[in-house]
Structures are given as structure tokens and as C-alpha cells.
């Protein structure tokens, strides 16, 4: 108990927990749709692009989030367009784009500041990396993501379950796919400060997969995924705080554990 009070007494921990809980919620909600629509790899691709953008921004002394959010949003829209165009294979495009962005980021870093702790925190995440202005922007954006998800829930369900039917009944499916991609892009950028570019996609994919092992309706999958995501975040972060392990990796391991438990429960 004392240790938890001590953990909460640090301002950077308060910020990290606040943003982390919100981002975990966003990632889990969006993750359900993304996994079911077979878009999981988009999240992974976006995180590498996010890394490139953050590296360039810090080399140019620009505000990291203000640069990365628009770049990643544009990439998300572009990737979505590609995966809807059957002539170009979406997964190949994602692979090319993400490794190129990673390469640009790494080259930029090595030519300017060198591989310092800041860069390492972009790759593997750090709870120390959130500044005061980052926190404010993160809170506003993640609340917007949550609000949009709740407002458009029936339409997002319809577009996820059966895009053709949704289109036929006059729903503008492209618009909601776009909404999904943009919200994902924002979530990825917000989450990667904490999780790291290499690990952020697990925040999107794991809770949805775990929830799908044990739940049978869409609503229960969404709620369970959100709850699991927040729990895993809190457990992983505390673990990382006390044992001084990297935050992102600790959260991923917590998620892996939960997934294993859910898989065993689901088998019965």
C-alpha cells in the first residue's frame, strides 16, 4: 500500500498513469474493430512511421507530438486506400512503408544527436518521456477518440461486421473506415511514447484477442477488451516502476499472460 502511495506521489507517474489509462482504453476499443477487419498490421506499420516522424521532429527541435500526429494520420489514410485497392497488396505496402520510415528515423538520429536515451525511449518506451504539454494533448485526443467511438458505436459495428450490407443500407462505409484509421493513428502516436514504437501494436491487438477468446457478443468483447487493457497497463506499469524494467515490455508481458489465461479459459 505504502509503495503504491509512493508511486503515485511522483508527478511524472501521475501523468503517465492518466495518459496510459486513456490510451489503453482507446487502443482496446479500436483494436476490436481492427483485429476483426484484419487491419492489425496497420497499427504496426503506423508505429514505425511514428518513430520516423518523432526522430525527425526531435532532430529539428520541433514539438514531437505536433509533428507525429499529422504525419501518422496521413499515413493511415494512405494505407487504408492501399488496402482497399486490390491491385496493390496492402501488407506488402505496409512492410515497405514501415521499414523505410524506421530507416529514415535511424539515419536522422545517427546524423544528428546519436543514439541517446531519448531515441531509445522512442523505440522501447518510457514513462518518463511525457512532458506537461504532451500530457494535455494526449488527454484531449484520447477523450476525443473515446467519445467518437461511443457516439458511432452502432455504425462502427455494422461496418466491422459487414461492410457490404452497411454500404447497401446507405452508410458511408469509407467514412467510418477512415474514422477508424485516423483514430488508430492518433492512438498509436500517443501510445508509442510510453510503449515504444516496437511494442505499441500489442496494445491494440492483445486485449481484443484475449477478449475474443472468452466473450461471445460484440459488446462484451469491447467492454472486456477495454477492462483487460487498463488492468494490464496498471499491472505492467507498477511492475516496471518497482523493478525498473522497461514500461512497454512490462505491459506487453502482462498482456501476454492475460492472453494465455483467456486462451485456457476459452478452450473449456
Amino acid at each position: 500500500m505504502n509503495m503504491i502511495v509512493r508511486m503515485l506521489s511522483y508527478p511524472f507517474m501521475q501523468r503517465a498513469l492518466l495518459v496510459g489509462v486513456l490510451v489503453s482504453l482507446c487502443a482496446a476499443l479500436l483494436g476490436v474493430s481492427l483485429v476483426l477487419k484484419r487491419y492489425s498490421m496497420i497499427g504496426d506499420g503506423l508505429s514505425h512511421v511514428g518513430f520516423g516522424a518523432l526522430a525527425v521532429a526531435s532532430a529539428a527541435n520541433l514539438a514531437p507530438l505536433a509533428v507525429a500526429v499529422p504525419v501518422v494520420v496521413v499515413t493511415a489514410v494512405f494505407l487504408l486506400r492501399l488496402s482497399q485497392n486490390s491491385r496493390i497488396k496492402g501488407d506488402a505496402a505496409i512492410a515497405i512503408l514501415s521499414s523505410s520510415a524506421l530507416a529514415i528515423g535511424v539515419i536522422t538520429v545517427s546524423l544528428t544527436t546519436g543514439m541517446n536515451t531519448e531515441v531509445s525511449s522512442y523505440m522501447f518506451g518510457s514513462i518518463l518521456s511525457l512532458s506537461r504539454s504532451d500530457t494535455l494533448l494526449s488527454v484531449v485526443l484520447s477523450l476525443a477518440v473515446l467519445l467518437l467511438f461511443v457516439l458511432f458505436y452502432p455504425r462502427l459495428f455494422a461496418v466491422t461486421f459487414d461492410e457490404t450490407f452497411a454500404r447497401a443500407t446507405g452508410t458511408r462505409a469509407e467514412l467510418f473506415n477512415m474514422l477508424l484509421a485516423v483514430l488508430t493513428a492518433v492512438t498509436v502516436v500517443l501510445g508509442m511514447r510510453m510503449m515504444g514504437a516496437l511494442l505499441i501494436s500489442s496494445l491494440i491487438i492483445f486485449p481484443a484477442l484475449s477478449a475474443m477468446r472468452v466473450c461471445r457478443s460484440f459488446r462484451s468483447v469491447v467492454i472486456t477488451a477495454a477492462a483487460l487493457s487498463v488492468c494490464c497497463f496498471l499491472v505492467g506499469t507498477s511492475f516496471s516502476f518497482f523493478l525498473e524494467t522497461p514500461t512497454g515490455a512490462s505491459i506487453v508481458l502482462a498482456n501476454l499472460l492475460v492472453f494465455a489465461i483467456c486462451a485456457i479459459i476459452g478452450k473449456k
Binding site: L36, R155, A158, F165, A166, T169, G170, S217, F218, R219
Partner: peptide, 17 residues
């Protein structure tokens, strides 16, 4: 797809939203 029958049927009311 993890969805209950009720959720799927209800999504047919999409055009009356």
C-alpha cells in the same frame, strides 16, 4: 465474428437511424 444474434439482427435497422 464474435457478435450475438441480437446484435447482428439489430444492425439491420441501420438505415432507420
Amino acid at each position: 465474428f464474435p457478435a450475438s444474434v441480437r446484435e447482428v439482427v439489430l444492425s439491420g435497422c441501420l438505415n432507420s437511424l
